[in-house]
Write a protein that binds this DNA or RNA. Structure first.
Lengths: 336, 336
DNA sequence: TTGTAGGCGTTATCAT
DNA sequence: ATGATAACGCCTACAA
């Protein structure tokens, strides 16, 4: 009696496996008493249907995959939280994959997922990619895909984003209105569509308010604090901006450390605003002005879109771009 | 050619399914050329072995479950990061489950996982539990279990924790040495073993330095900021502690907000130290003194223990308690 | 080195 | 209402 299964259960009860199986499915015809007898013994013997056998038989996994660049990150962990709530409600399981912004990893995850392992995928893309053909394979296998926040423009599928262009424009405008004349734009990956959108908002705001765009003020950073610390330190020392727009939370953090160590005063010497999902932005020294995306909602929304597709078996290829609003919250770091 | 499988691949190549199967397994005897032919066509047809079929056949899932109270939390997201690294290296998939500290959810997840869905489980317990018998079922099914950070003492299995008692003692001592005479201890759940351990360290430090233990200074909080804000506000206004020891990060955060709004000065009026995995503790106003657990290492260590058990098929029941050291980092919030 | 065949645990179809 | 049976896709003795 090591591994209990439907057969042993059936034998124990002098029933057929079909009848036992029926006891665990919602709809089927089955006598109430038999059903209770079965469930009772099952509980006693600690029997649970084997998911892999069911999945194989039903060609359905009741599992989704969530692919994100990283998890130790306020934005993504909040988004996953949102996804989880919806998935749990639907009785789905969640597989997590982290790309660390590595294109190869992303490709390999996707390829690995295209054979029935999951019923759908929610992804925030790594962004280093050029060839996105591996994603088209999913379509052939009818596995729905939803992008959130970081998307590939050239792939037609559901997308949940925020109004990156507009909020960047407004954030830049806010700095300008605060008196900034030389605003640095910090970005992790210029080539990423999200980086581009945000940068365009920045650039257009400069134009609109007749501030010259300076190549030197657009700073390509990385994901590592130490390198960023140095890069940003150099910019502040040499290029001397009076405002900083961080397109990503971690760059604002590095900037804070740099300013702290250099004795540069925020907001007196330099003003800072950043895309950020940091819940304690008000507690920083000084409190940080943020463009805050509705991370949890984005996760929820992405999950809902995915399940709509899963449940209807329909395609996600068109008219499925949801754009939520990010909120600009002005605090001390921009002089408020 | 809708769904490609091993049979179709075999037919296409004029081979048997076994030969094709062999091409995908590492060890088996197979002609190099045949193997290449197979892999080539597989790639072309975008074939990936069906995991559920393999799992069913092999009775192995190459998947682990990670059960944590929440994910939008610095400690847990860093720990998961550590787990992920090890798991990925081993080629394992990761299922995520969030309990939100709900015992029922925990029981239901575990029961659901006890039939082959995963090869092992890493969990930080919800803590509301009394009856832990559902966990013993896992042992019967030979599914290894590793606890980390929050554990059930009465379950004999591998555990990865930090020196909670000692660090709490030292943190309390630090407050005392800083001149605090009335130190409040903020806890989310007194009954949790981790809460108990930390509280014992606090209590023993008081005793050692001959400071009376006051019932009123031990404050039971919740997981909701609004409620905590009120609770802590009342304590500060009415009981007037001169030091606060937060056993959990979120309670320190709430305390900061309270102090900010009440105009209570940290560290002049009240000193604060907290268990916390906040990477930007140095940037808070004032910078927060922390007891920092090696979250990532804990995740890594827990995963390594789990895989040791999975790979060896051995039991985890004894002598598997790993205690890592938390670090006490003194900052402005405790006066310096 | 390759092929044959049976079974992993379920469930759906068809009978009874 | 219940039972017999085949099939989901794969892997592994065993045979050739």
């Amino acid at each position: 009696m090591d591994n209990i299964n439907i057969k042993k259960l059936a034998k124990e009860l002098n029933l057929s496996t079909s009848t036992v199986s029926r006891a665990f499915r919602g709809n089927s015809d089955i006598n109430k008493e038999t059903k209770e007898r079965i469930l009772h013994l099952a509980n006693e013997l600690n029997y649970e249907p084997n998911h892999y056998a069911s999945n194989l038989r039903e060609r359905k996994s009741r599992t989704i995959a969530v692919i994100v660049p990283e998890i130790a990150n306020n934005f993504f962990s909040q988004a996953i939280n949102g996804i989880e709530r919806v998935a749990r409600e639907k009785g789905y399981h969640i597989l997590i994959y982290l790309t660390y912004d590595d294109y190869e990893k992303e490709v390999s995850f996707i390829n690995n997922l295209n054979n029935g392992r999951v019923d759908g995928i929610i992804m925030s893309v790594s962004g280093e990619a050029n060839d996105h053909n591996y994603l088209n394979k999913l379509r052939k296998k009818k596995i729905p895909l939803v992008f959130f926040d970081r998307v590939y423009e050239d792939i037609a599928t559901a997308k949940v984003t925020t109004n990156d262009y507009e909020s960047s424009f407004l954030a830049t405008k806010h700095l300008i209105k605060g008196g900034c004349k030389r605003i640095a734009y910090l970005v992790v990956n210029k080539k990423m569509s999200i980086g581009k959108m945000r940068m365009q908002g920045y650039a257009d705001a400069l134009t609109k308010y007749e501030i010259p765009y300076e190549e030197d003020l657009v700073v390509d950073c990385s994901n590592e604090h130490d390198a960023n610390y140095e890069t940003i330190g150099n910019i502040i020392k040499k290029v001397k901006p009076d405002g900083i727009f961080a397109s990503v939370e971690r760059l604002a953090i590095s900037t804070y450390y740099v300013c702290q160590d250099l004795g540069v005063k925020i907001p007196e010497d330099i003003k800072i605003i950043s895309f950020s999902s940091l819940e304690i932005a008000p507690l920083l020294n000084p409190s940080l002005s943020t463009i805050t995306q509705p991370a949890l909602d984005m996760g929820t929304k992405a999950a809902k879109l995915l399940f709509k597709a899963i449940e209807s078996g329909s395609d996600l290829t068109v008219n499925n771009v949801v754009v939520l609003n990010a909120e600009i919250i002005k605090r001390r770091s921009t002089g408020r």
